[in-house]
């Protein structure tokens, strides 16, 4: 890996193909869960209106406050999944310990 150019394939594929294979789906799920928490708050036309009001709050304001709760739920779920994925990665790595780091 002393080549200065990056590998053409996704970076982790080359060195950790085996251990990442188990958790690739989980890491993709984490990204999929987080994307709406980034995209929806930035999609201003979606919520830039007064009605429907909630308890006197214009939609614009209560929707964004609600988005905080939504985004928090997303990050909490993603965090939980990341713990599982990390543990599986660790186990997979433990199994191959003693052979040195793959790719060196």
């Amino acid at each position: 890996m002393s080549d200065s150019r990056p590998p053409a394939s996704p970076s982790r594929g080359q060195t950790r193909g085996r251990s990442r294979g188990h958790t690739r789906g989980l890491w993709i799920a984490i990204v999929v869960i987080l994307v709406p928490a980034i995209v929806i708050p930035l999609w201003v036309p979606l919520y830039d209106k007064v009605d429907p009001r909630l308890n006197g709050w214009p939609f614009f304001f209560w929707f964004q406050m609600a988005m905080i709760l939504f985004a928090t739920s997303c990050t909490v779920v993603a965090f939980t999944l990341s713990r599982i994925a990390d543990r599986k990665d660790r186990e997979a790595r433990g199994a191959s310990a003693g052979q040195g780091r793959v790719g060196e």
């Binding site: 928490a37 708050p41 964004q64 985004a71």
Partner: peptide
């Protein structure tokens, strides 16, 4: 508010 909402998934 949206700034501090989207910041955390990005940090994550």
């Amino acid at each position: 508010v949206p700034y501090t909402i989207v910041a955390y998934p990005i940090i994550f």
